[in-house]
Design a binder for these strands. Structure first.
Lengths: 322, 322
DNA sequence: CATATTATACTCAGATTGAGCAAAAGGGGT
DNA sequence: ACCCCTTTTGCTCAATCTGAGTATAATATG
């Protein structure tokens, strides 16, 4: 039997401190959002990455900068029977190679590719802890997960479910671990709290929980791929200076901090964040000032790209506030 | 055009502090070592991981424990024209999904699958820095890389080459960064120091450097996949407690340290290594003793698997000695 | 019973981290 | 001009962690 291979892309940009992803809009019968997705053409492209760049370029008009492979999804169980993916016949498609791309600017999208930038918390409202634990976690999801645990077939299973849920979502005194985005989404999928769980089995979604709680669903397994991308970037930001791929050539330290905070969904301690930046020698001041801060003008900084080569080149530290 | 998808596995075990990988022995006309490799059968297996487990089980008789996806290789440029891969016709093969598997014991291999455990430094002699920088790096490879830099077409290119080489291999005062295994291998490939570079272009290997310096080659791009696996495990060991997947249920702290040292190719500071283990509460003593240490008997410890769930569950810290 | 060998315990200075306070430099209104 | 608000930037301090070294304990060996 033959397989077709698709490429899917999680393309991230930060707009005013809010992380956005490039999403394809509401096509097909179900009218769901999706990620940019295209077939990989082994004739035309020597590598996946070249294929991806070409195809994003052709369809959205902008050039990808930083790109890394995320994961290869080959799980037949997760397929959406009703999905119609461009250029890929459902019969043979099994595999999609996910990529993460980071761009410094959310260029407006033109061309035939009907894509828009969307706040990524639209799909994952429970992931934004910048103003403390959001209500949707603290009450609605906690309750739904509790129900799921209580309705387990055995007592052991019940305990196991609640242990996993409370660890993943930072309930019952457990700390919130921001990079476990995928783990949380998969738990919600397993607990059938998220509409995809029902849709993939051809059933109607029975819950009363709205998008405010469960987030906006995506077609096929795209929300899972997005979760993988978010996990990756949240983890990587701590040990590789990848944030700078999301910034313009110059930026204020506050803007940089807001970008990191947006990605992590957490607030950071300003003074310590800056101290860590200085110690790692990631940035250097340009004499210029940015006056429109609303207070004292801020100096504009630039990323010292040389540091990527120098020594260990660790990531940005993320000292939690409070 | 259709593609075939193969699964390749980097399966690691530590024998007496020496990391080993499962290799397939010298089949085919060239008589090269390779990694276990099999076609992915989308009909028979719902996921890659299930497929991999099944097929390793069937061919070697043992059960994989910890498994994670490494990377998907789809690079046509790296293909070996003369390779003959079992069950996969060369015509259509482009993609292979690499997996990393960790097992606590190097079970002897039986069955039709002609596999052996091999010290992984056999393929990467320059990666073992447990007794300081090895000669093959300090002299032979440094010289070969210097030649490659000097023979660059332009002066800029020459500087760029040497910068990359000295950074990757820790020359000229740069520190050795153990997890950059893949980067180093790819540099040697690019610099045509490694036999694969010539073989893949259908030429004979012209150098006088022996296997003591360039390591033992593998068929197709398997040495690159192995390098990817080594990079992954060397990086991950620091932020996830994966070493324990390589240990039996009980072990002495020295054996644990030797395993980590073997993986990283570095020596660690014993006291500080233990202090870090204690602080993270990764292990707990069983009252039992291991008498055959050659000196004072050592207590046998066990991994506290609960910690995987608890809090952040960081990795083992790796305080360098000297 | 001394010696070699390995395991384990303890100490200490320097660096790093978490947290908070204080001053500086703008804008806007009165 | 002056006060108030806001944001940037500079500085301090205690608690903890890290790197490195020293000392002692428990075996086997000759």
């Amino acid at each position: 039997m033959s397989l077709q291979v698709g490429l899917s892309a999680v393309i991230v940009a930060v707009v005013d401190g809010e992380p956005h992803v490039l999403a394809t809009r509401s096509t097909g019968p179900l009218g769901l959002d999706g990620l940019p997705f295209g077939a990989f053409d082994p004739e035309g492209h020597r590598t996946f990455e070249i294929g991806l760049r070409d195809w994003v370029q052709a369809q959205t008009g902008f050039e990808l900068g930083y790109v890394e492979q995320l994961y290869t999804f080959g799980d037949r169980g997760r397929e959406l029977p009703t999905a119609r993916l461009d250029n890929v016949s459902d019969q043979s498609r099994i595999i999609s190679v996910g990529y993460l791309g980071l761009t410094p600017e959310a260029t407006e999208i033109g061309g035939k590719f009907d894509a828009v930038w969307r706040d990524w918390y639209r799909y994952f409202p429970w992931e934004d802890h910048r103003d403390g634990k959001p209500d949707c976690v603290a009450s609605d999801l906690a309750k739904a997960l509790k129900d799921w645990s209580d309705n387990a077939p055995s007592n052991n299973e019940s305990i196991d479910r609640w242990t996993r849920a409370s660890l993943a979502f930072g309930l019952d005194e457990h700390p919130w671990i921001e990079e476990r985005v995928l783990e949380r989404y998969e738990l919600l999928y397993e607990a059938q709290i998220v509409p995809e769980s029902w849709r993939d089995r051809g059933k109607d979604y029975p819950f009363g929980l709205g998008e405010r709680v469960t987030g906006v669903q995506m077609r096929s397994d795209h929300r899972r791929i997005l979760a993988t991308g978010m996990s990756r970037i949240r983890g990587k930001i701590k040990y590789r200076p990848v944030v700078f791929e999301l910034m313009a050539t110059t930026f204020t330290l506050s803007a940089l901090q807001e970008a990191v905070e947006g990605i992590l969904g957490l607030q950071l301690h300003k003074q310590n964040f800056r101290r860590a930046l200085e110690k790692a020698r990631f940035v250097e001041g340009t004499g210029q000032m940015e006056p429109a801060t609303g207070g004292r003008p801020a100096e504009l900084f630039r990323f010292r790209r040389e540091i990527l080569a120098e020594k260990a080149a660790l990531g940005v530290q993320t000292p939690r506030r409070k």
